[in-house]
C-alpha cells in the first residue's frame, strides 16, 4: 500500500505555509502527526497533490496558560499531553482521554490539533472540547479567527477550516473552582474507534448545585455532538441519582448512532446512557475533591 505521488513542502513559517496553501488551494493537505492522513493516502481515499508538513513551523508545540485560557498548540502530541502537569491538574479529563487514544506509538506522533482538524466524529477530542467549551484558532494570510467548538464541525471530514487556513491552537477556558471532568469510551480493543464515548465537565457550588455542565458524545452521531438537553437537566440542580438518570436518558435519546460491527443502534444508545451516568458521577467526584 503506497500513496499516490505528491509534492512535499516543509515550510518553516506560517506565512510560508499560507503562500503554499494559496498556490495549491484545496489540492493541498496539512500534515501534522499524519496518523489519520497517511493511512487514508495509502488506501487512496485521499490523493492530495501536495502535502504541507507543518512540523518545522516553530511556536506550535506548547501547552501554555495565559490568564483564563489554557492554550494547546496545533503540534502538541498526545504523548505530550500525558505529561502536561498544569493541564492535567485543571482538566483531569485529558489523563482519561489520552490513554484511550490508539496506542503509545500513535500517541508519540498524533496531535490534538490533527484529531480535531480531521473532522471525524469518531475521534475523541471533539467530544472533550465540547465538554470544555473550547475554541479553535484558525489562521490564514488574511488574519486569525477564533471559532467556538460548536461551530467548528460541518460534516464528515469537514470543518470550519478553509482551504487557505491552518488550525494553529486550541483555547480552553480555565474552569471555576470545584470543577471536575472525565471521559471514557467503550472500545472493542486498543486502537479501535469508540463504540460510544462520553466527555463531561461539571462545576458544583458550595450548596451542591451544578452551575456548569458540558457533555460531549463520541461516535454516536454524524457530527461530534453536544448533549444539550443533558446539560440543561443538570444546571441549576443538585447532582442526585434522579438528575443523573434524567441527563443520561436525554443523551441516550438524542444521539443518532448508526449500526455497525461495534453494535446496533439500541445497544449504542444504551451504552451512551451508561457512560453518561458514570462520567457525571466521576466528574462530580473530581469537582468536590
Amino acid at each position: 500500500m503506497i500513496a499516490a505521488d505528491f509534492n512535499y513542502e516543509a515550510p518553516t513559517s506560517l506565512d510560508e505555509a499560507f503562500t503554499l496553501l494559496r498556490k495549491y488551494g484545496d489540492e493541498a493537505k496539512i500534515l501534522s502527526g499524519g496518523h489519520s492522513l497517511i493511512p487514508m493516502m495509502k488506501l487512496r481515499f485521499a490523493s492530495p497533490e501536495c502535502i504541507i508538513d507543518i512540523n518545522n513551523i516553530p511556536g506550535l508545540s506548547d501547552i501554555t496558560r495565559e490568564g483564563d485560557i489554557m492554550k494547546i498548540g496545533a503540534l502538541v502530541r498526545e504523548a505530550q499531553v500525558e505529561h502536561a502537569a498544569e493541564l492535567l491538574e485543571h482538566f483531569p479529563i485529558f489523563a482519561d482521554v489520552t490513554k484511550l487514544i490508539a496506542d503509545p506509538q500513535v500517541r508519540n506522533m498524533g496531535t490534538v490539533g490533527g484529531n480535531l482538524a480531521h473532522g471525524d466524529a469518531a475521534n475523541d477530542h471533539p467530544a472533550v472540547m465540547m465538554a470544555l467549551r473550547a475554541s479553535v484558532v484558525i489562521a490564514g494570510a488574511d488574519g486569525t479567527r477564533v471559532v467556538p467548538i460548536d461551530e467548528f464541525f460541518f460534516g464528515f471530514y469537514s470543518t470550519a477550516i478553509q482551504p487557505d487556513e491552518i488550525l494553529t491552537e486550541i483555547q480552553i477556558p480555565m474552569p471555576s473552582p470545584y470543577t471536575g471532568s472525565a471521559y471514557h469510551k467503550l472500545e472493542r480493543k486498543v486502537g479501535d474507534y469508540a463504540t460510544a464515548g462520553v466527555a463531561v465537565q461539571l462545576t458544583i457550588d458550595a450548596n451542591g448545585i451544578c452551575t456548569y455542565a458540558g457533555i460531549g458524545l463520541t461516535n454516536v452521531n454524524p457530527l461530534p455532538m453536544r448533549a444539550a438537553r443533558s446539560e440543561e437537566a443538570l444546571v441549576g440542580k443538585k447532582i442526585t441519582d434522579e438528575t443523573i438518570a434524567e441527563a443520561a436518558r436525554y443523551a441516550s435519546d438524542d444521539c443518532n448512532p448508526s449500526a455497525d460491527l461495534r453494535g446496533d443502534v439500541e445497544y449504542k444508545r444504551a451504552m451512551v446512557g451508561v457512560l453518561t451516568k458514570r462520567m457525571i458521577h466521576k466528574a462530580a467526584q473530581r469537582a468536590v475533591a
Binding site: 512535499y8 516543509a10 499524519g34 496518523h35 497517511i38 493511512p39 502535502i51 508538513d53 512540523n55 504523548a79 503509545p104 506509538q105 500513535v106 508519540n108 506522533m109
Partner: peptide
C-alpha cells in the same frame, strides 16, 4: 525509535 520515542515506521514519511 525516532529521537528515542517509539513510532510506527509505516506511517512516517522518510523525507520527514
Amino acid at each position: 525509535h525516532v529521537d528515542g520515542r517509539t513510532a510506527n515506521a509505516c506511517l512516517l514519511l522518510a523525507v520527514m
